[in-house]
Design a protein around this nucleic acid. Structure first.
Ligand code: FES
Ligand code: FES
Lengths: 152, 152
DNA sequence: ATTATTCCTATAAATTTATGTTGAAATCCC
DNA sequence: GGGATTTCAACATAAATTTATAGGAATAAT
């Protein structure tokens, strides 16, 4: 249980792809390229990007020469926003965000566990921005290069 | 994304139900009663309890007068164990536990985010035992009672 | 024997994941 | 300006997985 759905995983990778292009000129990126680079069906990406557009995390430009760009700087978009756009909330169980959802809430002890865990996760995801992840990736890449150099 | 599956939610409630009976005599509990008390289909509970039995978190006693009991004291079973029994791992994405799962791992920056988040969650769930949750529930119940008293 | 229970297998329903088809808007090029 | 092209947009459908129900066999108690 407690797996990030493919929507969430693909959504983050989509956003990271847009973010990397944002820093190098911010030209619109077409989904076809993202689909190729990330090896995800373009049709599925089209569905995933809709809620991201609605939540104003990306902007779309139609027609030839169009595509998608981040609506804000990578440093100003955090993972929590992305996940929330893709499913309305990033709580581990629905009763945490919607107190009417579960009628056994008053006596439910499990609720407290899910609530605390959700809080923990949410705080973490709020702190991590796309820029952080890009920097992390850069570092990771460099490290693996160095390792390659010293090996003989 | 990142919802606890029904298997996980029902599984924890099932275990909590067994735990509450464990402390009051540890007689075998029959699934029919759990199903009624928790309002979950008995057929579905039967399926959910199988992996819990395999992982030796519960013991079964067949035949009339049989049922299920916790295999250890509630204070010695934590939430992480339960979730792992129910789906093999409590990591947020499969690449975290199975490094062969995802062939884009070497360059994937998102991976680090999921890994850290998984670690965070796992550490939390490992610290929470069934006994902790029972105590929490007791406290919760008492609090709501007090509140009822002062209201007039 | 009869009853109560877990155990095993099959299948139905619902949801999530993925693909296909067509339409609409913007741009490019002549 | 206008047709061809490129791209997003919207809707429909298929495949896979998760969630839930059903029927009956095996086991033990009375
Ligand atoms: S699971 Fe909803 S309140 Fe317990
Ligand atoms: S999601 Fe598997 S390694 Fe990035």
């Amino acid at each position: 249980m407690i797996k990030v759905s493919t929507k969430g995983r693909y959504g983050l990778r989509l956003m990271l792809n847009l973010a990397s292009h944002y820093n190098s000129g911010n030209k619109a990126v077409i989904l076809k390229n993202v689909a190729q680079e990330e090896d995800i069906s373009i049709r599925y990406l089209e569905q995933i990007i809709i809620p991201l557009k609605i939540k104003k995390l990306v902007k779309s430009i139609r027609g030839a020469g169009g595509g998608y760009t981040l609506a804000r700087k990578p440093a100003e978009i955090n993972v929590c926003e992305i996940l929330e756009a893709l499913e309305g909330t990033c709580a581990l169980v629905d009763c945490v965000e919607d107190t009417d959802y579960c009628d056994r809430l008053p006596g439910c002890a499990a609720y407290e566990v899910w609530r605390e865990a959700s809080q923990l996760l949410q705080n973490f995801f709020k702190k991590v921005t796309l820029q952080h992840i890009l920097d992390l990736g850069e570092k990771k890449l460099q490290k693996s290069k160095e390792k390659g150099k010293t090996r003989r």
